[in-house]
Amino acid sequence: MSTDTHIDDDKLQRFYDGELTEGEALVVGRDVDASDLEQERVAQMERLGEVLRAGADAEADGIDANALFLRIERGIEAEPAPRLKLIEGRKRKNRNTAVVAVAMGIAAAVAIAFLAQPATEPEIADSAHPDEGDTALAGGNVAVEDPTHVQLHPPGGSSVELVEFGANTGTVFEVEGERGQPLAVVWIAEE
């Protein structure tokens, strides 16, 4: 049944999809029946269709989209079809470039705003707890001794950055606020 007849890719795909008119379908169907090559091409389309349907079912079942796309991509590679191919997203690339430009602008704004801030003294400690090794010294700055115990917390509550007790002794600790936020307490014992 082999012949040299070669049916146009697009027409064969539309034949497989049932999109040809009745007359066109009769002609193409006859050519397919007469050619082993065309029959193999139609069989490839069927196998590819099965891969895609399996992928669609998997997606409906909530299977990972990346794995699904990978399977489809492999199916396309294994069964080359004239109307299916992976297309690079050129518009997406342009959008990415625009996003980068806007991001650069925002970053520049933040940088300028940051640089415009007045210089401040270096931060000594974020916060301290009486059970976590804070130190009280007479006549000097006090900071948390063990930096591994510095507590980091989201913006809420209050914390001591720096304290000078002068001639007195004192300690720094926290109490819990109504929302569980740490509230700084400086307790000074008068000498």
């Binding site: 209050s158 304290v163 606020g177 000074i188």
Partner: peptide
């Protein structure tokens, strides 16, 4: 009595000096 205390505080959240 207290030469310097520097605190960072969220709006409305108190800090205390006692003793």
């Amino acid at each position: 009595y207290l030469p310097l205390l520097q605190v960072v505080t969220a709006p409305g959240d108190p800090f205390f000096v006692a003793g």
